[in-house]
Design a protein around this nucleic acid. Structure first.
Lengths: 228, 228
DNA sequence: TAACTTATAGTAATTTAGACTACAAGTTAT
DNA sequence: ATAACTTGTAGTCTAAATTACTATAAGTTA
């Protein structure tokens, strides 16, 4: 075996990929196709090679199992309880990402038999401590969303204010007031209104917006308060 | 060697311990007493044993090197660049803590030759990527302080509003308005005013407060906005 | 054309933030 | 003893933000 293929065997990576579509929030799971957990659902995950950084490993693992690609993964937490993994001691680094479901055609990679989006409220029993990892990660997202902008990756390039609101509602699991949400969002200067409108909808067409990348990045750096 | 003493050699822990005293914020560093980094300053750090959890390892490592004890360490980030450590591939988990400097008498453990508090603005050149780790951790703290209460561990049990304000000023590196700070803090219901007053001060004695543990914990869970 | 659905604008009461003033209660210097 | 000084604490005023609404506009569908 080449050194470059050697893995660090005490350390794994697991990914929580959140996806949004039709006002509901989902998470991407794989069904293991081999090994002792064959047939079980789990977060996409795998081993880190000796000569790749954690960030790159996370990206490689996720894309090889699910065909999701070109997304930004962010580190979230590392889980290091002694007995979280059977057989031997394995510590796992959890990454998470937010994506627009419609952008990806899923297909299972070589080691998995299935790849499916599950609604965040209907997540099945998973291998190891993956249910715990998911729950903590979702809760982390709920907090985070109140201090930093999100949505760049969860929505189409151009979206309506209602879509954005439904995204927040799906993450925070509560209803928000429409006029107030609009006002707050618009005042942030985060949104650029395009001159286009929705098409093919069976009601009054809404104006389409896009994010102002500059403001978006500045708000990520600086943070804001979106207490809802 | 007993299995229980075996270490996971690709994985280390480093600790950023923030301390507060006399309105200034410091970080706890050790000077290595052996090995290739002998004589260099560094964050307290070490190796994880095969049968201890990460949280326990962090605590063991910190207490064995610095004699700081009974503190709450929280995981912050994991640094996994390929070449961050010379000799071999080592990924490090960073923990951080906030403590009241006056509570601890420092003394160097067996593998270090010195333990010292450094003002956060006067941190020396350290081993490996420890300066990067520290900088990111400090910036993390600055963000965090605006959404969650801190101070339980950085201040004496009973403290004045000015002490609390100076803590925020030290972390955020900016001056705050005194009356407004008071009002905001008091309105949070986080502080319980004791009937006691400062003693032995050469000016009007201030009222002493303590944190309401219940509210404190609820605010950590729920978060708040302290945009200053 | 009425009923319906969603978009969007506006209003009014209340709360909060921010800048600033004033004064109270002690200590220290003369 | 008193003035000068230091820190604590209360209050005021203005602008801005939040919240809970109401109203209306612009389309689609029956």
């Amino acid at each position: 075996m080449k050194l470059s293929d050697e893995i660090i065997d005490a350390l794994s990576i697991d990914c929580v990929v959140f996806g949004f579509k039709d006002s509901s929030l989902s998470v991407l799971l794989v069904k293991h196709g081999e090994g002792i957990t064959k047939g079980q659902w789990a977060l996409p995950g795998g081993w880190i090679k000796y000569n790749e950084s954690l960030d790159k490993a996370a990206y490689r693992i996720l894309t090889s199992q699910t065909a999701v690609q070109n997304i930004y993964l962010e580190q979230f937490h590392i889980f290091g309880e002694v007995n979280r993994f059977p057989v031997k001691r394995v510590i796992t680094v959890c990454y998470y990402a937010l994506v627009n479901i419609e952008k990806f055609e899923l297909h299972a990679g070589p080691t998995v038999s299935d790849v499916v989006w599950f609604n965040v409220n209907k997540v099945p029993k998973m291998s190891f401590d993956h249910n715990t990892i998911f729950t903590k990660c979702f809760s982390h997202l709920q907090h985070k969303v109140q201090h930093e902008p999100i949505g760049f990756n969860l929505l189409p390039k151009k979206f309506t204010l209602l879509q954005l609101q439904e995204l927040y509602e799906a993450i925070l699991e509560k209803k928000l007031d429409k006029p107030n949400f609009r006002r707050k969002m618009i005042k942030m200067n985060l949104l650029v209104s395009s001159s286009e409108k929705q098409k093919d909808v069976s009601h009054r067409a809404a104006k389409l917006f896009r994010f102002d990348k500059k403001v978006y990045d500045r708000l990520i750096e600086k943070g804001f308060s979106f207490e809802i």
